Simulated scan of single mutants.
Amino acid sequence: MTDEVSKFFFNLTPDRVLDAVEASGVRATGRVMALNSMENRVYQVEIESDGEPESRFANFRVAKFYRPGRWSVEEILEEHEFISELAGGDIPVVAPLKFPDGSTLKKLKEYEIWYALFPRVGGRIRDEYSESELERLGRLIARLHLIGASKRFKKRWKIESSEYGRRHLEYLLSSKALPDSVAGHYQRVVEQICTVSEPWFKGVPLLRVHGDLHLGNILWDNELCRLVDFDDTMTAPAVQDIWLICPGRDAEAVKSREIIISAYESFREFNRETLRLIEPLRAFRIVRFSAWIHRRWQDPAFPRVFEEFGTEKYWREQLIALDEIREIMTVVPAGVY
């Protein structure tokens, strides 16, 4: 992303947002509200209606402007196609709307910035789940994976080995993001995690998954459970869409995970040996998160939100978490988790 495009993306104006929405053939009222998103720029836009709206959300559109340089057009379209497949299979997701020419992706006139429009939906994030809600979620994930396994991504990224973790480690080392006081220790810990986990990935089936299915990406509207934000959709083991929902190691998290998996198995087989991948996947997420922040540091929003990033304290806390993962992986027998 060039400096000029970066500046434009960081400072999208309401007029640009309104013009983008009206390219879909609707008329905007002029009311625009920025929504919470670090990676992309997302806005809620009110549109005019000729009659009584069908629902309280019908007069709104959500405009998502993709960060330049993050995804190729082909990768974004694969995301859109997967979401549309899921919607066609009665999976409650939020599919992108089509523009008059039938496409789901448009480019701004001035710069190589691509955007899509989505309907606004209702729902709330829940921090606690009942057993029946966990069961419902498990069945929903299994149905998502049945569709996910029916085709393959050609362009989206993969977690198919420890190379995924090594790639982000290499970025942190080559970019000098790590201070000298922790770089050596950090590298040794992550490399050991990668080495130990490498054989665990061999032979594990891969499929299209949500990729970032934590509680913040699950909306509940009364009894309806809806999955949102497929920005990180990828090819990965099925367990990737399960561990983030209950990421803890305590008895309650293990119990919740078991409820989800048992319900999942009523629709699709789940290999419980792959539960041992949770710890390396946790480590890869930690390393990738730091690499992501460092790559985005020129975005004014990032220093404001991640005030401690790059400090000795930050990296020490990262090392404590990674050391704990390494210890668990090297002490707990393979296949037991």
Results as ranks from 00 to 15, higher is better:
1 M>E: 07
1 M>T: 02
1 M>W: 01
6 S>Q: 15
14 P>L: 05
15 D>K: 12
19 D>Y: 03
22 E>T: 11
23 A>T: 11
25 G>F: 10
30 G>E: 06
36 N>T: 08
46 E>P: 00
52 E>Q: 13
53 P>T: 02
56 R>W: 06
59 N>M: 09
59 N>V: 02
61 R>L: 14
62 V>C: 02
69 G>S: 06
73 V>H: 05
75 E>P: 04
79 E>G: 09
80 H>E: 07
80 H>C: 07
80 H>G: 04
87 A>D: 05
87 A>G: 13
91 I>C: 01
92 P>Q: 10
95 A>H: 03
95 A>G: 03
97 L>F: 06
97 L>K: 12
100 P>D: 11
104 T>F: 12
104 T>A: 02
104 T>P: 00
105 L>A: 02
106 K>S: 15
107 K>M: 14
109 K>F: 03
113 I>L: 06
114 W>K: 13
115 Y>N: 09
116 A>D: 00
118 F>L: 07
121 V>C: 03
121 V>W: 01
126 R>E: 15
129 Y>P: 04
134 L>T: 04
139 R>P: 01
146 L>K: 09
150 S>N: 14
151 K>A: 14
152 R>V: 05
153 F>E: 13
154 K>V: 12
154 K>G: 12
155 K>Y: 15
157 W>Q: 12
157 W>S: 08
160 E>V: 07
166 R>F: 02
168 H>E: 04
169 L>N: 00
170 E>G: 03
175 S>A: 15
177 A>Y: 04
178 L>P: 00
178 L>K: 03
178 L>A: 04
179 P>L: 10
182 V>G: 07
184 G>F: 03
186 Y>H: 13
190 V>D: 00
190 V>F: 08
190 V>H: 02
197 S>P: 07
197 S>E: 08
198 E>V: 08
209 V>L: 02
210 H>K: 11
211 G>Q: 05
211 G>R: 01
215 L>M: 14
221 D>P: 05
224 L>V: 11
226 R>G: 06
227 L>F: 08
227 L>D: 08
227 L>R: 05
233 T>E: 02
233 T>R: 01
237 P>C: 07
243 W>T: 00
246 C>S: 14
247 P>R: 03
248 G>F: 11
252 E>L: 15
257 R>F: 09
259 I>Y: 00
259 I>R: 03
261 I>G: 06
262 S>T: 09
265 E>R: 15
266 S>W: 06
266 S>D: 14
270 F>H: 08
272 R>E: 10
276 R>Q: 12
277 L>V: 01
281 L>T: 00
281 L>G: 02
283 A>Q: 00
285 R>P: 06
290 S>A: 15
296 R>P: 05
298 Q>V: 02
302 F>K: 05
310 G>M: 03
311 T>I: 10
318 Q>H: 10
319 L>Q: 03
319 L>Y: 05
321 A>Q: 07
322 L>D: 00
326 R>G: 06
328 I>H: 03
328 I>S: 12
336 V>E: 09
